[in-house]
Simulated assay, not measured.
Amino acid sequence: MLETHLSDQRGTADHGWLKAKHSFSFANYYNPRHMGFGPLRVINDDRIAPSMGFGTHGHENMEIITYVMSGELSHRDSMGNQEKIPAGEVQKMSAGRGVRHSEFNSSDSSEVHLLQIWIEPNVQGIAPEYEQFTLDDLPLTEGWRVIAAPNGKWHDAKGAMRLYQDAALLCARATEASSELQYVLDGQRAAYIHVATGSASVNGMTLHAGDAVKVWDESLIKVELHADAQVLLFDLPRH
């Protein structure tokens, strides 16, 4: 079964310096039909104005993934990390028993466009962790980059970022993959597929940037990447 969650069905927020679209209920946006999907709790599509950003704030017991699509984000946290995250790189922070961080647009002239993703962990109170990679350095399997997975391993692919949940995040980009990909979904699993940029077809259904589809009871997912497509696939436990 496939159920679409289209871009114009997302919540929106406009704070001037921040324009955001929320796939799931977040902050002042509440929709009881879209509270998350399994342990996937947040996908925020954020555009941050030049030289602006989020001041220091805290998180606990959450897996937080930042996927930068354009521009560059500056990150600083209470673990001592002070990094820049340009387009083409991805960061994972396991907040564990508590971490504080700030995020700012590094540019004084261009906006930064990113996805911030929250996944609920299956363990509580761990020591906070930080990882950051270029997408090209993450393992590739059957055309899919494995961004994060339990113990950094998904099937035969090793070297992804460690995720404290029985879930995996993979991506496919039109720039490096065949235009047609497949993904085999275990019968006890579900998938959430989000088109970050460009457009793509999922089992014959055309999706555009910001669109997503929930998948369950489908053993084979066929994805056709169109120009400039970046597609994120979350392999999740059934809920």
Rank of each mutant, 00 (worst) to 15 (best):
L236S: 03
A200H: 09
L225F: 01
P237R: 04
S219A: 12
H226E: 07
L233D: 07
A196Q: 08
M205V: 15
G204K: 11
K222E: 15
G204Q: 11
I193A: 07
N203D: 14
W216F: 12
E218D: 12
D211T: 05
S219K: 11
L225D: 03
V202C: 12
Q230A: 00
H208E: 14
D228R: 04
H194S: 11
H226W: 00
L220C: 11
S199L: 04
D228N: 11
V202G: 11
G204E: 10
E218L: 13
A209V: 08
D217H: 15
H194P: 03
D228Y: 05
Q230P: 00
Q230H: 05
A229K: 03
V223T: 15
H194V: 04
E218W: 06
H194Q: 15
V231G: 02
V215N: 09
K222M: 09
A209K: 14
H226S: 10
G204W: 11
E224W: 00
A227Q: 07
N203C: 13
L232C: 06
A209L: 10
S219Y: 07
D228F: 02
V213Y: 00
K222N: 10
H194Y: 14
V202Y: 06
G204H: 11
D211M: 11
A191N: 06
V213R: 05
G198W: 03
Y192Q: 06
H194F: 13
W216Y: 12
W216E: 12
N203A: 12
L220V: 15
L232Q: 02
L232G: 00
S199H: 10
H226G: 02
A227P: 00
V202D: 12
A227M: 01
A190E: 14
L233N: 07
L225Q: 06
G198Y: 05
